[in-house]
Amino acid sequence: MRVALVLVIILPFVIGIGLFLKSRLILQDVSLWELLFSSEWRPLSGKFGFFPFIVSSLWVTVLSLIIAGPICLLTAIHLTQYADNWVLKIMHPVIDILAGIPSVIYGVWGTLVIVPLISNHIAPLFHTDTSGYSILAGGVVLAVMIIPFVLNILIEVFKTIPIELTEASLSVGASKWQTIKLVHIRKAFPGIISAFGLGLSRSFGETIAVLMVVGNVSKIPGGVFEPGYPLPALIANNYGEMLSIPLYDSALMLAAFVLLIVVLLFNLASRILIIRTERYR
């Protein structure tokens, strides 16, 4: 048991160190700054600029939260405050199943439904022409994927609000909605922020589903209808060829390392925020 415990505790460090050791090769040649903020990606001539991929990642991640955030917040309030029993009976299994669907299935759904929807119906509304394989498609698919995740955390957050607060608010004459708006949301605010933070980090690391709908063109995207190429997709797409060029291999491992660090920091910040709010309840 102690061995298992030690294994679990050293695992993230081993992952971090392993990836870092592999990425040291490229860091000896080029500075980290140059790698992260140069936009020239030509592996065969030794140019590894991650900037377009980082920008794409930010685009799809932020977009997914813009779509999923309000829906999750509204649904969480609905389910914890207003929903009838029959709605709960439907929604609990729905959230569970959504959380269990593998990302590759979301990807297939994206190519079957979202991509044609964007190219045939949404893009014409904005007078643009697109294949549908775009930042927007990636954002929508990611939004659906993080909804069950964020929603579950938000429901937990709203459940921790003490009943006395609600009673006090109602007894001074506030309506139910006023109580929710002025008491619950304010009280739950740190929890909401951390739920969104965890959602962001989940989006940031998601690979296959995004890869299937986002288009994978390595240039800085100029808008939501243009294709992008997020970091995880870059790693996943190039695993076959990277072995032959040591520097390429090293660059992709650096990408994985950056991904790990960003996700861990986001997770750390969000979880600490949750724990602190629970303590001062």
């Binding site: 992952i15 965890l198 995880p232 790693i235 996943a236 994985a256 996700v263 997770n267 979880r271």
Partner: peptide, 24 residues
């Protein structure tokens, strides 16, 4: 603290596990 740690591990994306598994 261990629970917190496990939650952090849960958050690591699977592609990172894939890349690490590959180096391993």
């Amino acid at each position: 603290a261990i629970r917190f740690f496990l939650d952090l591990l849960w958050g690591i994306p699977s592609i990172v596990y894939g890349a690490f598994g590959f180096t391993l």
